[in-house]
């Protein structure tokens, strides 16, 4: 095979690899698929569904829930830092109710016998803060460059400069990742003593995303830097989560997972975007699969 053909195939691989649907497509389509489930398999879809017995069912569920849980709503100002969680913040009833699970996340053990996790076990606190932001056009950045932009050959510097000139450089702690042609400013949240970055359900970084072409910023998009609603949720123990690592799907069923990172995953649902703590498993730094860190009883099944 010639070098020229090698190069062409490399470019084809990069080209096809860069074709991805928009960020909200995966959860949107999954939600439509869930609506196809027959009624007896659709407990998960009961949320938000007009159902003949819904009022009575809701009363029963709420009555049961209120015995165990106390309402705890927090809408704290100040975007900086994401807010460390203390044990006093852990109310019995998290304010947001049962959380939507990250799309594709595996909540129950299944036929995962071929999967083994051999990495270090992260220390998870007993609880962590879940954040919520309305999902509207007002909460989503959309910046296009006006006129010629001064630029730097360093994409990170160019992206930072672009955001700063548009008053959109985030004030909260963030980590910067290069994702294809994009520079992503992922918000970090406190989980115990660690900072956890924000990712999408497929493990790619989520945040303010600056797209560059030839070193020139062409647009910025992502969540507006604004105060988030907060609620503390109990976490499952790391041991429990690691005892049931989700299998990498499809062809990689036999993959050995050897690394796990505590992250926050963005979950759009019901007109909101939730930022929920999660465990991101990797295998050789490539395979990614994600499992919620929130205790399963607080997740919609």
């Amino acid at each position: 095979m010639s070098d020229e053909q090698d190069e062409l195939e490399r470019q084809l691989a990069a080209m096809y690899g860069s074709i991805r649907p928009r960020a909200g497509f995966e959860p949107d389509l999954w939600s439509r698929l869930e609506d196809q489930r027959p009624w007896y398999r659709r407990l998960r879809a009961l949320r938000g569904r007009a159902f003949v017995l819904a009022p009575a069912l809701a009363v029963l569920v709420l009555a049961g829930g209120f015995v165990l849980l106390l309402t705890h709503t927090g809408f704290h100002g100040g975007a900086g830092g994401g807010g460390a969680t203390t044990s006093s913040q852990v109310a019995a009833t998290p304010a947001f109710g049962k959380l939507p699970a990250p799309p594709g996340a595996t909540l129950s053990p299944a036929s995962k016998s071929a999967v083994a996790y051999s990495g270090a076990v992260p220390a998870l606190p007993a609880s962590a803060t879940v954040y919520r932001q309305p999902l509207t056009s007002e909460t989503q950045l959309a910046i296009a460059p006006a006129g010629t932009q001064a630029t730097s050959s360093d994409p990170v510097v160019a992206a930072k400069d672009f955001l700063a000139r548009n008053n959109a450089l985030p004030s909260y702690p963030y980590v910067i990742t290069i994702d294809g042609y994009d520079v992503v400013f992922s918000r970090q949240f406190q989980v115990g003593a660690e900072q956890a970055r924000l990712v999408m359900a497929d493990g790619r970084p989520y945040g303010i995303r600056v797209t560059l072409q030839n070193g020139q910023p062409t647009r910025a998009s992502g969540p507006v830097d604004q105060p988030l609603a907060e609620a503390a949720y109990p976490l499952r123990s790391a041991g429990e989560a690691l005892a049931q690592p989700p299998a990498p799907p499809g062809d990689q069923y036999s993959a050995a997972l050897n690394s796990v990172e505590v992250v926050y995953v963005v979950v759009p649902a019901g007109g909101f975007v939730y930022y929920e703590p999660a465990l991101l498993f990797t295998s050789g730094g490539i395979t990614r699969t994600l499992q919620p860190a929130v205790a399963p009883q607080f997740l919609q099944q």
Binding site: Y16, G17, I19, R20, P21, F25, E26, L29, W30, L33, P103, G104, T106, A110, S111, A201, D202, A247, P248, P249, G250, D251, Q252, Y253, T289
Partner: peptide
Amino acid sequence: PPFEDLYREYLTRIYG
């Protein structure tokens, strides 16, 4: 495998 796994693994590939 659970359909969810297929969905996660193949959505981007099929889309591409």
